[in-house]
Simulated assay, not measured.
Amino acid sequence: MRKLFGFILTPIHYIVFGLILVIFQPVQWVCYKFIGYRAHKYSVDVLNFFLTASYYVLGNRVSFTNNQTLPLNRPIIFVANHQSMYDIPPLIWRLSKYHAKFISKIELTKNIPSISYNLKVGGGANIDRKDQRQAIAELLKLGVRIKDNNWSTVIFPEGTRSKDGNVKFFRAAGIATILKKCPNALIVPIGIENSWKMVRHGIFPLSTFEHLKFSVLAPIEPATGTPEEVVLQAENEIKAFLRQAPGYVQI
């Protein structure tokens, strides 16, 4: 039944999603060129609020739970499992007060309305996966930016999306590189549930009437271990949390 509704509602969702991107392209440009960072960031936050709202066209819901007391005057590295591109707008919107910056493939900086522009000017890191030296340099620059501005970054250490919701091995290299320039960054795991279900049939049809859940877990001090140990702890926290989630199935 969800798949059947997906055939009907997916085209509407894509039209709404695309219109939002097209509308906010000039809005971002004006904010950045004539007002500055804060106005541009606000436009990006609002953009991602509307992108998240477009999920409701499919009958899907989004909930974000943060029971942690996180500092606003300290850099944060949010470490999350990754299930689909639909992870990203809710994270940007709900982590807006932490100035969350993302690490993206450099290919995404071209030809995508709103998204490409934000990736180029928003302060994140755009890496070339074929050029290790460039990627490391970008991550080091990101570390400096989040340290100097008390920003945060969101990292998906699995390196690729999980197609079945099961958490893959977390790679520590990217986080270790950022910590070289920002050693006081607080590590904060985020558990993501059910985002993969939206794309269980691929990009068409999208699944309907799903409940996407984002949960901020207990923070980890980077000084408690090596970057590898800290990342492993974050991975284990996320896995343990997801195993307790209703309907979780280990495949």
Rank of each mutant, 00 (worst) to 15 (best):
Q132A: 06
F24K: 02
E138A: 15
D164L: 03
P89L: 11
I178T: 10
S116P: 15
M85L: 15
K110I: 15
A185Y: 01
I238A: 00
L9K: 02
Q132R: 06
L212S: 05
T109W: 06
N126H: 15
I12A: 05
V27F: 11
R38V: 15
A39P: 11
C31T: 14
T160P: 05
S195H: 02
A137S: 14
M85D: 08
L21T: 05
R38W: 15
I190Y: 00
V249W: 02
L95G: 02
V57H: 02
A185W: 00
R133W: 13
Q68S: 09
G225F: 07
A240E: 10
L108H: 11
S84N: 03
A137H: 15
P75T: 12
L91H: 06
V121W: 00
T208S: 10
V22P: 06
K213V: 05
G18K: 03
I178M: 11
A176N: 14
S96R: 12
Y14D: 04
I146M: 12
L91F: 09
S104V: 08
V46Q: 11
R145C: 14
V57C: 03
I203N: 09
K141Y: 11
A39D: 08
V79M: 03
L72R: 04
T160M: 13
L47T: 05
D131V: 10
A185G: 01
P205W: 01
A218S: 12
K141Q: 13
N48G: 00
G225H: 06
K120G: 08
A172Y: 07
V62D: 05
R171Y: 11
G165P: 01
E210C: 11
N81Q: 09
T177E: 07
Y55R: 08
D148E: 12
L139P: 03
R74K: 10
D87Y: 01
I15E: 10
P157C: 12
P189G: 01
L242K: 07
I115A: 08
S152I: 02
H82Y: 07
N111S: 12
F50G: 01
N166S: 09
I106G: 07
L119W: 13
V46I: 15
F214C: 02
I203C: 03
L19F: 13
H40Q: 14
F102S: 04
K3Y: 00
T208D: 06
K239N: 04
W196M: 00
S116L: 15
P157G: 04
G36F: 10
E107Q: 13
A172F: 10
Y55Q: 00
Q134F: 14
I146C: 06
L242N: 03
F7I: 07
A125S: 15
E237F: 08
A172K: 10
K101Y: 12
Y14Q: 08
V16I: 07
G36L: 13
R94W: 04
G225Y: 05
V188H: 04
K105M: 13
I35Y: 13
A53E: 14
V249N: 10
A125E: 14
F241K: 05
P90V: 09
K120N: 11
L19Y: 14
H201P: 08
K130S: 12
G59P: 06
D131T: 11
I15H: 06
